[in-house]
């Protein structure tokens, strides 16, 4: 059984927040899904190499030179929610400590 605390911990790792009601529902659903996942334990896999990719196994190299012809700075900033002077604007990163949090 996965607990509500565990789900809350995973949510924190995933940068997601849930209301109390959502947390209940996600705990219930994740518990069902993880119960399904536990069927994998039945499969003997001692000595089996895990597969994490199915492309041709090779490394891809290229010369360490700048790639040109990509999007311009202006283009890249087109989709930025808030920008100023060609830079991306974000809220305060370091909390000055006025609040208790």
């Amino acid at each position: 059984m996965i607990s509500k605390d565990q789900v809350a911990h995973v949510a924190k790792l995933a940068r997601l927040s849930f209301s109390e009601a959502e947390l209940e529902q996600f705990t219930h659903q994740l518990d069902q899904i993880i119960a399904m996942e536990n069927e994998l334990a039945e499969v003997p896999t001692d000595g089996v190499t895990p597969t994490t990719q199915v492309s041709d196994e090779r490394n891809v190299f290229r010369a360490d030179v700048p790639v040109t012809g990509g999007p311009t700075r202006d283009q890249l900033l087109q989709n930025v929610p808030e920008s100023k002077d060609g830079l991306i604007k974000v809220p305060t990163i370091i909390d000055k400590g006025e609040a208790d949090a």
């Binding site: 995933a14 659903q29 899904i33 993880i34 089996v48």
Partner: peptide
């Protein structure tokens, strides 16, 4: 749901039992 399941499967303490196990089953 999928982000949560994936984050859980990759998290410390569960990686071997879930991610690695599933990747071995993928081989089979």
């Amino acid at each position: 749901r999928r982000i949560m399941l994936g984050t859980f499967a990759l998290s410390s303490g569960y990686y071997d039992a879930y991610f690695n196990k599933a990747a071995a089953v993928r081989t089979l």
